[in-house]
Design a protein around this nucleic acid. Structure first.
Lengths: 129, 129
DNA sequence: TTGACTCAATTACATTTGTAAGTCATCATC
DNA sequence: GATGATGACTTACAAATGTAATTGAGTCAA
């Protein structure tokens, strides 16, 4: 397979809907757009087609409807996108992003608790190597 | 001022160099490109011009050299870019990104230590409201 | 059986982005 | 004072992106 080329913003937006629905027709995606998001049905068609062309989605025919489903795992797309962003904004270093997030975004005390647990688990599990 | 439009990847790359140098001529930016990054001098010129047009950089003339300096604070650009990414990838929720980062990226035990401290400070300081 | 719809497929088109070439002025040097 | 480097400024141009109109076929209800 040719090296996937990145997703544009609009494509990512649409891909996320397909991921959530775990496969969907153009119409389903169209109808799942958040209310503020006012784009044409045929625009959605275009994005889905491009996502398929780029190798991110599979298509199958259900009668005469195309049903799109994830091909590349969301996990993978997320990893790649985040990685690119870390490179671009922080020269590839994760810690500055972590600091940025902790300092600039909102967390409930429950969130903080969960984060602590994540860190605990990390340390516990970091016995390899 | 017109609402700044987002930065493209190439523009962000160049902007970061200007931030680091805290102001630089085209040539200085050009020479600060990492060795692998092989783009033309005039390409750098174009990116800097666009960054200025978009309102992200200031220019001043030093003799016949243009010296570009940050206009919008890096902090702000970072906040906006991260925010957009969180919206796009995680529907605006920060926690899933935090989990992703903790689970998918590498941290030294010192990093983990620092993160714990950040969280401590957060909780300590979260007395406002 | 004729609209009204729905959908697939194709085509369109302006804007943005990544990248650079061309032109003209200036400066330093030979 | 011709020549080479430097840089500003202008222009270029293909690819990617955001967005949609058009066309044509199939389906359903009246």
């Amino acid at each position: 397979m040719p090296p996937r080329t990145g997703l544009s913003k609009a494509e990512l937006e649409i891909a996320r809907i397909v991921w959530q629905l775990k496969g969907a027709s153009v119409r389903q995606v169209f109808e799942s757009l958040p209310s503020g998001r006012d784009i044409d049905f045929s625009t959605v068609q275009t994005y889905l087609r491009r996502l398929e062309e780029k190798g991110y989605l599979n298509v199958r025919l259900d009668g005469r409807n195309r049903v799109y489903s994830p091909k590349v795992k969301p996990q993978t797309v997320i990893r790649e996108t985040v990685s690119e962003m870390v490179d671009l904004l922080f020269g590839g270093e994760t810690m500055p992003l972590m600091k940025h997030l902790v300092e600039e975004r909102q967390f409930s005390s429950n969130d903080i608790h969960q984060l602590r647990e994540l860190l605990d688990r990390l340390e516990a599990g970091s016995d390899e190597q």
